[in-house]
């Protein structure tokens, strides 16, 4: 007859099953917890950092950033375009002014000849 050899690892698991610390343990922890409340700043800061790590929030932030960038590009383009128009108008105004000055200059010269 062969004796069954005990599996050491199974025996270890059995011998090392967790022990209860006693009925008063949770109550003792909770007494200390209520005596020293948690600083709120730690939680709120960490909640913010945790929120930043959230994939859905990251996606939303990326979309928002893309939208802001797109609006920025359109506005910049419009600004540049408006700048060109203004420059054209200024040049046109200068051209008109220059023509008027030429006319006046010519009139003055002709009147001096007379």
């Amino acid at each position: 007859m062969t004796e069954r050899k005990p599996d050491l690892e199974e025996e270890l698991r059995r011998a090392l099953r967790p022990q209860d610390p006693g009925t008063d343990f949770t109550a003792a922890v909770m007494r200390e917890v209520t005596r020293t409340p948690r600083p709120p700043s730690v939680g709120s800061f960490s909640a913010a950092s945790r929120a930043i790590r959230s994939p859905s929030l990251r996606m939303s932030a990326a979309l928002a950033a893309s939208f802001i960038a797109a609006v920025g590009v359109v506005r910049w383009d419009r600004y540049v375009h408006e700048g060109f128009e203004a420059r054209e108008q200024a040049l046109e105004a200068l051209r008109v002014a220059s023509q008027n000055l030429n006319v006046v200059h010519r009139v003055v010269q002709e009147s001096e000849k007379i």
Binding site: L16, P18, Q19, D20, P21, F25, T26, V29, M30
Partner: peptide, 11 residues
């Protein structure tokens, strides 16, 4: 949470 983990932590 304490009750859930106290056995492991204490042991």
């Amino acid at each position: 949470l304490v009750r859930t983990h106290q056995r492991s932590v204490f042991s």
